[in-house]
Write a protein that binds this DNA or RNA. Structure first.
Length: 273
DNA sequence: ATGGTGGCACCGCCA
């Protein structure tokens, strides 16, 4: 039995964030980091810098300039899988199995997602990006139904899902209800996908839904902290087999104020393995 | 009511 700490973070260019990543790794000591928006091809990934931070095991699903996801780990990784859920050709998913030192524990599977942001116009008729986003959640619903049958494995879904589902996941429900990320149609599909997989929204086990909780603050504010117009776009879902192992979840809000920040901050998940 | 910033592309696209 040992403790394992998993992190999920939309890094908004891994190459621009190397110093911040090193500082984060040193201060929070995650064993596994799921990154989104690495914004580079696999061949451009700064693998040596990452290894120097203590992450010997790296799996990538990169893409030139946009999107791209990666998993960095101190434990060996296997079972790499990268699904193109809507056939867009974009790198938005990467699944791995983490081989910890507890040989008798059920397999630990991580699914790292970067869901399409959806553009500005919340109308699938005129906005293809929004249409793609809705299609992505439809695909996650079908996929979730199959995942639900895998009762033997401990499964975690993490990443930037680009939806703030609850009223307290946005700074103003009233002002945000027509803004992409918090519209009823997105929230409905998000909740349907979550229910289909039988996933628990484990962030909200530790911070009740009545309390504000954000993981993202726009770059476009004069003072992000003062305005505090955040959204909870990053999520951690666990299946029933993994749920009892989760001992803590926390959002590293302070990192939004570090030098050269991402607009997202990491979420940490502590597990008893 | 509008535009505000940031990253990568390569001088527009995406968030």
């Amino acid at each position: 039995m040992s403790r394992i700490r998993v992190a999920t973070w939309n890094v908004n260019s891994v190459r621009k964030r190397l110093k911040l990543l090193a500082q984060f790794a040193s201060e929070a000591s995650p064993d596994v980091i799921c990154l989104q928006e690495i914004k580079c091809r696999d061949a451009e990934f700064p693998i040596n810098d990452i290894k120097a931070m203590g992450f010997e095991h790296v799996m990538l699903n990169g893409q030139k300039g946009y999107h791209g996801v990666a998993v960095l780990s101190k434990w060996p990784l296997s079972g790499r899988q990268a699904i193109d859920f809507i056939g867009s050709g974009e790198s938005r998913h990467l699944a791995v199995q983490v081989k910890t030192d507890n040989a008798s524990a059920a397999p630990l599977l991580l699914h790292n997602f970067y869901v399409p942001a959806g553009g500005d116009e919340a109308d699938p008729e005129v906005n293809k990006k929004f249409r793609d986003k809705l299609a992505y959640f439809e695909a996650l619903t079908l996929w979730g139904k199959k995942q639900r049958r895998k009762k033997a494995a401990r499964v975690m879904v993490v990443g930037d899902l680009n939806v703030a589902p609850l009223e307290q996941d946005v700074w103003s429900h009233k002002k945000m209800v027509k803004v992409v990320s918090h519209t009823p149609v997105e929230v409905e599909l998000f909740e349907r996908a979550k229910a289909a997989g039988g996933w628990e929204d484990v962030m909200r086990r530790f911070v009740p839904p009545e309390e504000k909780l954000y993981t993202w603050w726009s770059y476009r504010a004069r003072d992000w902290q003062k305005a505090n117009r955040g959204r909870r776009l990053d999520h951690v879902w666990v299946n029933a087999a993994l749920a009892p192992n989760v001992t803590a979840v926390s959002v590293l809000r302070d990192m939004r104020g570090w030098e050269v920040p991402s607009d997202h901050v990491p979420v940490l998940i502590d597990l008893e393995d």
